[in-house]
Each structure stands twice: as C-alpha cells, then as structure tokens.
C-alpha cells in the first residue's frame, strides 16, 4: 500500500501564528481526519498542500510527486472541497460541469451527473438558489467528477444536517474502497471522523499533538473519572490533561491499559476524539 500524501516537517510562519514542523502520512485506501480547534492550522495545512500559500519549510508529496515542482501533475490527481462554495452564484450545475470539464483532464461528466442526481441537485437552477448543504453537495459532486485519486476536504461537512453528513460519509467510504484512493478531511465535527476516518492527526496551536490510527488511538487513550483525592495520587506523567469540577474530576489517560494495571481500583472509560481535543485544549489553557 503506497502513500497517497506525505507531509514532512511542514512549516509556515505568519508571525502571529506558526504551523510548526507538521508531519503526517495518508496511506492509500484510507481516510485521514485532520482535527483541531479553530485556528489550530488545519486550513493552513490544506492550503500548503494545494499550494494556495507558500510554505516556509518542509516537503509535501502526493503519490510520490512533489506538490510544488510537479504541481500540474499533482493537481490532476486531486479533488478539492473547500470550506465554502467557490462557484459563482449566477452559474448552474450544468455550466459548472462544462467549466470543470475543461479544467480537469480526467473529468468524468457521467460521474458528475450521477452525483448531481444522487444528491437531488437541480441541474438548471442557479447556485444562488441553493442552500448551504446543496452548495456543499455540488462541491463534492464536482470533486468526484474530477476523477481524483486523492480527495482533500476542508470542513466539508460543517453546517450540514446529520442525514446529509451521513450520506456524504457513505460516499467517502465507497470512494476509498479502491486502495489507490485516499481522503484527507479536516473537520471539528469529530463524530464524523469517528465514523469514517482510519487515521487521525490532531493539530493544536500549529503543532501535531498526535497522528495515529483512529482505532488504536481510541483503544489506547481513556477517560479517568474519579474524585479529587484519587486524582491527586495518580502519577501525572500518565495523564495528558485533567479537569477538576465541583462534583468530581476527569482526566485524559495516555495509555489506559498501563493505567488500569497500575491503578486497578480506578475506572477508565472509553474516550472520544472530542474528549481528546477538549482535554488537550483546556489543559493547555490552564
């Protein structure tokens, strides 16, 4: 299984914000979820991959080709869905299809049309009449129509209702049935990524906090729920963050199996990606 995307030591310095030494890999046939709070660097990372901004350091390769040196070849392999629709309000899906067919050498009009019908998008109505969900579906249909091997989606599911999100996640899962395909999706709706992602990279303040297989991550990390006195006797090096409330304490356990062996009397619950984000973010704030 070859890598669809390799990001290595990526750096971008804006002065007030720095994307610092970001590295992760998206293997073929998988979905990589890029999570992190607002301003963590998810969109900046995606912009660097798409060469929308110039990186200050690091390497990015897509299917073994450098994203800058072989830009055109790389972009023929990529389908993109950005955080908001980029199509002119006056255009309709048919016109958009015609435009994109001339921009993407691998364009598949039938595939695009199939997705328009599947998503029940009116082909002759102007984009200005579309809801946010419809615009996002149109962007996704356009991305699939480009016949990409790598789909890159920046907050593509935010603002959509759960039914539509589920429908779209199913399409993503179908897409990666081919081991030659892969998806990088950034989102702060972590429940979506728990459903679909194979790997998760968590960005916090411009740095990679963790980048692992999702199942391994959810199996390794755990949530300790205990009283204040119990928390005080726990070895802090086993915890990645904690919250002390009026009625009890919660803590993020780095390795639940090791922890349970050492503290058999304490209960460690399964954890969600959201818990990991909240503990890390709030822990940092404290």
């Amino acid at each position: 299984m070859s890598n669809a995307l390799e990001v290595s030591h990526l750096t971008k310095d804006y002065g007030s914000f720095k994307l610092d030494d970001v590295s992760f890999t998206v293997p073929g046939g998988t979905i990589m979820g890029l999570i992190g709070e607002n301003g963590a660097g998810k969109s900046t990372t995606i912009k660097c991959i798409l060469n929308l901004i110039h990186r200050d350091g690091g390497e990015i390769s897509v299917f073994g080709r450098d994203a800058v040196r072989d830009e055109r070849a790389v972009k023929t392999q990529i389908g993109v869905v950005l955080d908001e629709s980029s199509f002119h309000e006056a255009l309709n899906p048919v016109q958009i299809g015609k435009i994109l067919s001339k921009l993407h050498p691998n364009w598949d009009g039938k595939c695009y049309g199939d997705y328009l019908r599947k998503f029940e998008l009116p082909e002759k109505k102007a984009v200005k009449t579309f809801s946010r969900g419809m615009k996002m579906k149109l962007s996704i249909a356009a991305a699939f129509g480009a016949k990409p091997r790598l789909l890159i989606l920046d907050e593509a599911t935010s603002g959509l209702d759960p039914v539509v999100r589920d429908e779209i996640l199913d399409e993503f899962l179908n897409f990666i049935q081919d081991e030659d395909h892969a998806i990088l999706i950034s989102s702060h709706i972590t429940s979506d990524l728990e459903k679909a992602a194979d790997y998760v990279t968590y960005l916090h303040k411009g740095r990679v906090v963790l980048s692992e297989a999702k199942d391994e991550l959810l199996d390794t990390y755990g949530k300790l729920v205990c009283g204040r006195s119990d928390l005080e006797r726990v070895d802090r090096s086993l915890l990645a963050g904690s919250r002390v409330g009026q009625f009890g304490c919660e803590a993020l356990v780095k390795n639940r199996h090791t922890f349970v062996r050492r503290y058999p009397g304490l209960t460690v619950d399964p954890i969600t990606l959201e818990d990991i984000m909240v503990f890390t973010g709030k822990g940092d704030a404290q």
Binding site: L50, N51, L52, R72, K75, T76, I78, V80, L82, E84, S85, S86, F87, H88, E89, L100, L103, H104, P105, A146
Partner: peptide
C-alpha cells in the same frame, strides 16, 4: 465567489 483559490487548486 472566492473563485480564484478554487481555480488555483485545479490543474
């Protein structure tokens, strides 16, 4: 329409 950033992401 923020079209340019999309167009640049195409070939």
């Amino acid at each position: 329409a923020h079209w340019d950033r999309y167009a640049i992401a195409t070939p």
